[in-house]
Design a protein around this nucleic acid. Structure first.
Length: 725
DNA sequence: ATGATGATATTTTTT
DNA sequence: ATATCATCAT
């Protein structure tokens, strides 16, 4: 057997991991150390050298994209298709199992997957039905609670209120939500995992079957597993399968949605004798960038411990720019991008990263003015667009008449004279008779409704029945095409004036193309192509922007940048309060997660890294001052070079402590007058307030004061007659 | 059913 | 500043 192609391109550590004996293995893979490569080569090694059948292998990732890439690369390496190899996301695999064993899982055969948007609607409806005050019990919070509990593997019946009435209510609402899902045959994302877990718990022979089948488990991004995912893996592994997990504790940035780095340690406990391989050689960044990243992350306690290194060059120093405000920051970034592009580099090789999406706007404005093409990641994805969800709701109702969420969504869309009153009556009937809205509508239309409303409801019911009849037996894309026209959606959006309506119509037509290009893959699970398409739409929301490939600058949050790399990277808005975010600084765990995010950000850069912050930033319509991010001070000074186009103000090369640095300058100007930022003052007319900012010198100095009752005012200090408090 | 008004909140995102 | 959402008036 020629193992050259599999091992040739690997370094010693990578090779050690790939060829590890069939025992539990934990690979701690630093950023840019060839993590995916190791997984791909491990799979190839098992199949080609160890003689493991592709059917005996299960590979789990977190995103569909990663799953697709992994399959692609394995096939390329082995030079053969591996259809029987199970590669997928936790959710995708759980879904596959549930389709296969719906009976054992206690689900209806045609259960529907709802995304978080559907889930929220469902919760809102539930609160309305129960006449729960949704200001005391915000739907979002309930959704958060339910998903959080499910992520921990807990159902309502497992929870105790501990005498806390708030909690008791939450639990009881959780229970109601479960009932509602049960009745409608609805499964949310967390439920997929929970059900799949229970499927095995309650059916030992089924579990045994899969344990026998999957001798090897490969897990990507292991640090991102939540409790239920880990439990699922743990069950599947049993005590015979060989788990091979790859992760990086320093890149765990999803604790807030249930991920637990602790699973790395738990893994070593659960599988005694685990072989640990650390990949520390980095093939991505310059030594300077790596040293900076290492130094920052070293401030975290509770790490596995790891130091990235490269045998490449030092590269350029990290450039630090202290902008006056967020516009200045944007101008600076744009200027550097200009240079970069003028030097013949690709725009797509440059990325602007920020902590929160709101920061993109100013940067976008700058780019638009400079006519530099850019692309913002994140935002609404194809299958999440309202018009697409409308169309899908019609399709779902056709496939599944009892799907209340879909029913409510489209019952009056396009408007057909079924107002809130009528819908409310249907809800009440449905609740009283524990039936679906579809049935309620049928029952009410035949007797209890006023004739006008009854006719409208009847027309809707007939429309759905007619669409179902007419699309039966058609090809999937013909079904979609027929439904978007027959439902009146196309005409409805055509009436929308302006570009918006046009795009909506285009999107709907695009949905037909999507259906045309859709290849059913789970034929074995006896799903209709339509049901499969609907599941696909929920499970894989599609790309953010469907526009054609163009060479453009990449804008995204640091979270979405994970896993990517760019020759030129800007980390913007590096200010305390923004990054680390205000809501994280209080709690040490939160701060450490922010620091890991910073580590992720830094390690995205291959050659050149700029760090920028603004001394003054307009946030939520208020100008406020910020200190440079404490993370900046954690980068060793010898790697940093401050860029200072504004020469008038001398500044230390780097801020020494969070309290020093940029925010000081205006304070100094004002300190003679006894004014400092945050100073409480009283004004004869405006009352009490707090000093936000001082501009200018001496007698004409202007102070920005936020008054408790009068809002923010800009006052000339000389005339303001402020009383210091 | 649509549009105007006012209150409210405002990290990060995948499935 | 701004986006979203509920409420109210038309």
């Amino acid at each position: 057997m020629d193992v050259t192609p599999i091992l040739d391109s690997l370094n010693d550590r990578q090779r050690e991991a790939v060829t590890a004996p069939p025992e539990p293995t934990l690979v701690i893979a630093g950023a840019g150390s060839g993590k995916t490569r190791v997984l791909v080569h491990r799979a190839a090694w098992l199949i080609d050298v160890e003689g493991v059948s592709p059917q005996g292998l299960l590979a789990v990732t977190f995103t569909n994209k990663a799953a697709a890439e992994m399959r692609h690369r394995i096939e390329a390496l082995l030079d053969m298709p591996v259809q029987h190899l199970w590669i997928g996301t936790f959710h995708g695999l759980a879904h596959r199992l549930l389709r296969r064993h719906w009976r054992e899982a206690g689900l209806p055969q045609n259960f529907q997957i709802i995304d978080s948007d559907d889930q929220l609607r469902l919760i809102k409806r539930l609160l309305r039905n129960l006449e729960v005050d949704d200001s005391r019990w915000p739907p979002k919070e309930l959704q958060w609670f339910i998903n959080g509990q499910k992520d921990e593997g807990l159902r309502a019946k497992n929870l105790h209120d501990d005498g806390d009435p708030q909690r008791r209510q939450m639990i009881s609402l959780y229970r109601e939500y479960e009932t509602l899902c049960e009745r409608g045959g609805l499964v949310d994302f967390a439920e997929l995992l929970l059900r799949a877990h229970e499927l095995w718990l309650h059916n030992p022979e089924l579990l045994a079957h899969y344990q026998r089948r999957f001798g090897h488990l490969l897990v990507d991004e292991f640090q991102d597993t939540n409790a239920i995912q880990y439990a699922w893996l743990r069950l599947l592994a049993g005590d015979a399968a060989v788990p091979f997990v790859v992760g990086d504790d320093d890149q765990s940035i999803y604790r807030w949605r249930g991920a637990r780095v602790e699973h790395i340690r738990q893994f070593q406990k659960d599988f005694p004798g685990t072989k640990v391989v650390k990949l520390e050689q980095n093939y991505r960044s310059t030594a300077t960038i790596l040293n900076a990243a290492n130094a920052v992350i070293a401030n975290n306690s509770s790490r596995m411990g790891k130091n990235l290194w490269t045998d490449g060059a030092d590269g350029e120093p990290i450039r630090l720019y202290a902008a006056y405000n967020e516009r200045d920051e944007a101008d600076f970034v744009v200027g550097r991008l200009r240079d970069w592009i003028d030097q013949g580099n690709l725009r797509a090789d440059a990325a602007i990263l920020y902590r929160s999406n709101a920061q993109s706007r100013v940067l976008e404005e700058g780019l638009i003015n400079a006519r530099i093409p850019y692309r913002v990641y994140g935002g609404l994805r194809f299958f999440e667009r309202a018009e697409i969800k409308d169309a899908l709701a019609y399709l779902r109702l056709i496939s599944h008449r009892d799907d209340d969420a879909s029913f409510e969504r489209i019952v009056n869309r396009p408007t057909r004279g079924i107002g809130a009153r009528t819908v409310e009556e249907m809800r009440q009937y449905a609740r009283a008779n524990a039936c679906s809205l579809w049935r309620a509508a049928g029952a009410l239309a035949s007797d209890q409704l006023a004739s006008r409303a009854a006719n409208a409801v009847l027309a809707f019911l007939h429309l759905i029945e007619r669409l179902a009849r007419e699309t039966a037996g058609l090809d999937l894309h013909e079904q979609v095409d027929h439904v978007i026209h027959g439902s009146g959606l196309i005409d409805f959006f055509k009436k929308d004036k302006g570009e918006k309506g046009e795009t909506r119509v285009e999107n709907l037509l695009e949905l037909v193309s999507a259906a045309k290009g859709f290849e059913p893959g789970l034929a074995e699970e006896e799903m209709s192509p339509l049901d499969e398409f609907l599941a696909h739409a929920a499970l894989e929301a599609g790309e953010g922007q469907a526009d054609a490939w163009e060479d453009c600058v990449q804008l995204m949050t640091m979270h979405s940048a994970k896993g990517l790399e760019f020759p030129l990277v800007f980390l913007c808005g590096m200010e305390d309060g923004l990054f680390p975010h205000q809501r994280s600084v209080a709690d040490p765990q939160g701060l450490e997660e922010e620091r890991r995010l910073c580590y992720v950000g830094i390690t995205r850069a291959k050659q050149v890294l700029y760090i920028t912050y603004a001394e003054q930033r307009r946030l939520h319509g208020m100008d406020s001052f910020a200190q440079p991010s404490r993370f900046i001070a954690e980068v060793p000074a010898e790697h940093v070079e401050e860029v200072r186009p504004r020469v008038q103000v001398a500044r230390p090369v780097r801020p020494m402590r969070p309290s020093a640095g940029a925010g000081r300058r205006p304070v100094d100007a004002a300190s003679e007058a006894g004014i400092r930022l945050g100073q409480r003052v009283r004004h004869r007319k405006f009352g009490d307030g707090v000093v936000l900012n001082c501009e200018g010198q001496g007698a004409h100095m202007q102070v920005h004061v936020n008054f408790e009752t009068a809002g923010t005012k800009i006052l000339v200090f000389q005339y303001a007659n402020l009383e210091l408090m």
